[in-house]
């Protein structure tokens, strides 16, 4: 068991970074904060795969690699299947005794953006969860296809403007509700499913450690504010994440064995969703008089969802 201490931030900072700088993610991108928090919470060997997305294209700019671990990329959608393939190969070689160091602890992690998790790689992810391999899938949810110019994905929330669902005189932007990926993954009877946020580093690191420790397929959805497509100043990434978790737009919770729901973070003062929406350029049009009903709808959805989470936590179903 080789898991590093996360008792406080000073002890956490004694870990040695395995995600190097000089990747080409935008300044202020939350993707690399999340990756660093995961890679610092363990010193086991890591085998990682990645779906195509911002993280993949920016950290493997030929002829450079940003990863100090085994990292593989094959196609857009198949991080989940390539990580399960690696996991099975590791198991078989361990059984046959062909590994040079069979006792070395190895963890398997797959990375995906929201496009490749919610839409394109969904079938591969669902298959891998169903087969029950021992891996962790981390979705970096920035609510659009940020890598290709901000098209809508099924993670895009109601009311936000994207390049394929633009707001204007005839539309208020995206009209469909966001897919509830955490509930879908919990319905696969996965042993550990969680939604985490990078501003709560301790909750996040604990969640990652729990997922890495758990035998079986684990899924983690993390909010990753995108300064380019959400249209805010790069320095405000953590502030926006604070607003997202405090306005309950992104509640932080975990589901164990598909039914045991725990809310991991309860904001002391729940903010109105206007504070979160108003901080970003992609929701600017909602503050016109004719779009007020959209904000009311978003607030109503959030309240209902939070209510549902609390009831589920109490009832343990």
């Amino acid at each position: 068991m080789a898991i590093t201490s996360i008792k406080n931030l000073k002890e956490f900072s004694t870990n040695n970074d395995r995600f190097e700088g000089a990747h080409t993610l935008c300044p202020g991108c939350a993707h690399s904060m999340i990756v660093r928090e995961l890679m610092n919470c363990t010193d086991d060997n890591l085998v990682m795969t990645a779906n195509t997305g911002c993280l993949e294209v920016s950290t493997a700019v030929y002829p450079f690699t940003t990863w100090d671990t085994s990292w593989m990329h094959i196609g857009f959608e198949n991080a989940a299947s390539s990580v399960t393939g690696s996991e099975v190969m590791h198991r078989v070689r361990k059984k046959k005794g062909t590994l040079p160091d069979p006792d070395a602890p190895v963890k398997f992690v797959a990375w995906g953006g929201d496009g490749s998790t919610f839409d394109i790689g969904f079938q591969w992810l669902s298959g891998a969860m169903e087969r029950g391999h021992n891996f962790v899938y981390v979705c970096l949810d920035n609510e659009n296809y940020a890598n290709t110019g901000g098209q809508r994905s099924s993670a895009t929330p109601i009311g936000s403007t994207t390049s394929t669902a633009p707001a204007g005189t005839h539309s208020y932007g995206e009209k469909q509700k966001k897919k509830d990926i955490v509930a879908i993954m919990a319905a696969h009877d996965a042993p550990y499913v969680a939604q985490l946020a990078p501003n709560k580093w301790k909750i996040m690191a604990k969640g990652f450690q729990k997922a890495l420790d758990t035998e079986g397929p684990c899924f983690i959805n993390t909010v990753s504010p995108c300064c380019t497509e959400w249209r805010f100043d790069p320095k405000d990434t953590i502030t926006i994440t604070d607003l997202a978790t405090d306005s309950l737009m992104f509640p932080v919770y975990e589901i164990i064995n598909g039914h045991e729901l725990n809310i991991l973070y309860r904001p002391k003062n729940v903010l109105k969703v206007e504070d979160y929406l108003g901080a970003q350029g992609r929701y600017k049009h909602l503050f016109k008089a004719e779009n007020k009903h959209v904000i009311d709808k978003i607030q109503k959805d959030i309240n209902e969802y939070w209510d549902m989470l609390q009831r589920r936590e109490e009832a343990r179903i």
Binding site: S13, T14, D17, F19, G21, C29, A30, S32, R36, I238
Partner: peptide, 26 residues
């Protein structure tokens, strides 16, 4: 913990400085 570019150099619980080769100035 929140530097996206691994540019804060910290050793033995002490912050030493900034890695200006990897910092993007966010």
């Amino acid at each position: 913990v929140w530097c996206p570019d691994t540019s804060i150099i910290s050793r033995d619980k002490q912050m030493l400085g900034i890695d200006y080769d990897h910092c993007k100035g966010c």
